[in-house]
């Protein structure tokens, strides 16, 4: 995609998005509701035309093609199954419209039913299926014509938690088995992290960062990304020196740590760094780089969250796994010190 802009009247829903989605990858558009993910997806599908820019597929511009001319299929959020057709007829619809012979349609439908574990359900009316089953029919229907790209717009949001988890695995498996490029839209960061090869984080019509789940989580380029994905501590710091892809920064306490920084940025002067709660450890006073008072302990079963009031202002959250049962060894209002692991801090672009 190249320089895509989309205006609805005077409202700009998508602003200058350039994305490259590789073939056979599981690509996720992640962002809060209303940031333009659906609009972007609909421009790939052909239901909206970009006001400016191009959509390229294998190097050819498809942005002016009609939806029924694009080798791209969609799994709709509400499934949009045809209620007057059976499961098999739904799955075979695309191939039928492409004018494929009946024997071919039948065999593909059979394969698809097997692929989504709905063998023997072919003649059922779709209205009699459960939510999860309908979801799988929708998937099979979109996969049956073997599109170059499969678009999925929050396909799991209507399912309950347990079903959602198993469908996540299922989707990942289908993508690997079929080798089709998946473009997946979600506002759920956890879903994005679990399933994707690469993620594009969006905010108010623009792409803020593209990268692997690891990149996005551990190396957020800016405050919005860091904030949107998981819990994070923001710290003010001064850059002391830069060498290679590392920089040394001085924290408010005077202690120095090493930090990574995003591409295309030369860190200098005052910067903001982020440290994930699980990348820090709590210890007795004097043992770490930041000192403070333990304000609150939140027990979460698997973990404890320690809210530390740092000397000189601000709160820092430390997450530690409960490796063994019993009390955690710290108590509220105790003075503690926070140690930060090496190379876990990341400097943000301002």
């Amino acid at each position: 995609m190249h320089g895509i802009k989309k205006w609805f009247g005077t409202f700009q829903a998508v602003d200058d998005v350039t994305l490259e989605i590789r073939s056979n990858e599981f690509f996720t558009l992640l962002g809060p509701s209303g940031c333009g993910k659906t609009t972007l997806l609909r421009m790939i599908a052909g239901f909206e035309l970009p006001t400016e820019g191009q959509v390229l597929l294998d190097g050819t511009d498809i942005s002016r093609l009609l939806p029924n001319q694009r080798p791209v299929n969609t799994v709709f959020q509400n499934y949009a199954l045809f209620p007057h057709l059976t499961v098999a007829e739904n799955i075979g619809f695309g191939l039928k419209m492409l004018g494929k012979p009946k024997s071919e349609i039948d065999s593909v439908v059979k394969d698809m039913l097997k692929l989504v574990h709905l063998e023997g359900r072919g003649n059922n009316p779709v209205t009699q299926l459960s939510g999860g089953q309908q979801q799988r029919v929708a998937l099979a229907r979109a996969l049956a014509p073997r599109p170059k790209v499969l678009l999925l717009d929050e396909p799991l949001s209507a399912l309950d938690l347990k079903l959602r988890k198993s469908m996540q695995m299922e989707l990942k498996r289908l993508q690997l088995e079929t080798g089709i490029t998946f473009v997946f839209v979600t506002h759920d960061q956890e879903e994005a992290l679990t399933m994707s090869d690469r993620i594009a984080v969006m905010s108010t019509g623009t792409v803020r960062q593209v990268g692997s789940p690891w990149d996005i989580y551990d190396r957020p380029a800016e405050r919005f990304v860091a904030d949107f994905i998981g819990e994070t501590n923001f710290l003010e710091a001064d850059v002391v020196s830069v060498s290679g892809d590392r920089a040394r920064v001085r924290l408010s306490s005077g202690a120095e740590i090493s930090a990574t920084y995003p591409d295309g940025v030369t860190p200098k002067g005052k910067v903001t760094i982020v440290v994930r709660p699980e990348h820090a450890r709590l210890g007795p006073p004097g043992s770490g780089v930041l000192e403070g008072v333990l304000d609150d302990i939140v027990y979460l079963g698997t973990d404890n969250h320690f809210h530390v009031k740092v000397d000189g202002g601000g709160t820092f959250i430390v997450r530690q796994q409960n490796a063994k049962s019993g009390p955690c060894g710290f108590s509220e209002q105790e003075r503690v010190s926070i140690a930060i692991n090496d190379d876990v801090a990341q400097i943000l672009r301002d």
Binding site: G46, F47, E48, L49, R64, L66
Partner: peptide, 8 residues
């Protein structure tokens, strides 16, 4: 500038 494909 082509008009958006109207499904209706």
């Amino acid at each position: 500038m082509a008009k958006t494909f109207s499904i209706k």
